[in-house]
Simulated scan of single mutants.
Amino acid sequence: MKKGILILAGVFALTFMSCKDNAAEKVKEENVADAADRDAKNTDFPVMNFSETEHDFGTINEGDVVEHTFTFTNTGKAPLVIVNAKGSCGCTVPEWTKEPVAPGATGSMLVKFNSNGKPNAQNKQVTITANTEAGKEILKIKAMVTPKAKPVSGTPVSE
């Protein structure tokens, strides 16, 4: 009991001591204005132009692993760099072009969906973090997953 109180007191002390500086007070107004001017002048962003942003796998069986390749073109004026891509759950796994995509060039994003343990209607998304003006792009997939047949309990097994 004493150890618990001591640990709790230590956590409170660290919390109060680590939060005494206000970071907003350290920001210089002239730096904020300079950054705003710089960003307003920079219109040379890459643009991810997808041939499609949604894909329907239709009806699949639970346990199937399906995949679809989304293709995109960089229609902007700067090289496109995909920093990260993440599925909305562990069952949706993206794989993407790691090298910068030059203006006018194409790239691809492979999205795999594992339907194991995911019966019925499924709607998933992949969030892409890139150096586009918005910073994030979204792809969507969906499927109707036919559940696995469940064994009927209480039925005697024939010998």
Rank of each mutant, 00 (worst) to 15 (best):
T69H: 03
N84R: 11
A36S: 05
H55F: 15
R38S: 15
A33T: 14
N61C: 02
V83S: 12
G76P: 04
S51W: 01
K20Q: 09
E67P: 01
A35D: 07
N61R: 10
C19L: 14
G90P: 00
N31M: 04
H55Q: 08
C19Q: 11
K41I: 04
P79D: 13
D44K: 13
F70V: 11
A33R: 09
V83I: 10
F50E: 00
V27G: 03
F45N: 02
G90V: 01
G58V: 05
T71R: 10
T53K: 14
E62W: 11
D44F: 06
D39A: 15
G90R: 03
E25S: 15
A23W: 07
G63P: 10
K77V: 00
E67K: 06
E29G: 00
E29Q: 12
A78M: 03
R38Y: 08
A36W: 04
K41T: 03
N74A: 11
A24W: 07
K28R: 09
V32A: 14
N61S: 14
N42P: 00
G76W: 05
P46Q: 01
C91F: 06
V27A: 14
T43K: 14
T75S: 11
N61I: 02
T92M: 11
D44S: 15
N42F: 15
T73L: 02
G90M: 03
N31D: 14
L80Q: 01
N22E: 08
C91D: 08
T53E: 07
C89S: 15
V47W: 02
V65D: 11
T73R: 05
T73D: 06
D64F: 06
E95H: 09
S51E: 13
D39Y: 09
V81N: 08
E67F: 06
W96H: 12
K20E: 00
M48D: 05
G90N: 10
N61K: 13
H55S: 03
F70N: 04
F45K: 01
D44W: 02
A78Q: 04
M48S: 04
L80D: 03
V83A: 14
T43Q: 13
E52D: 10
E62L: 13
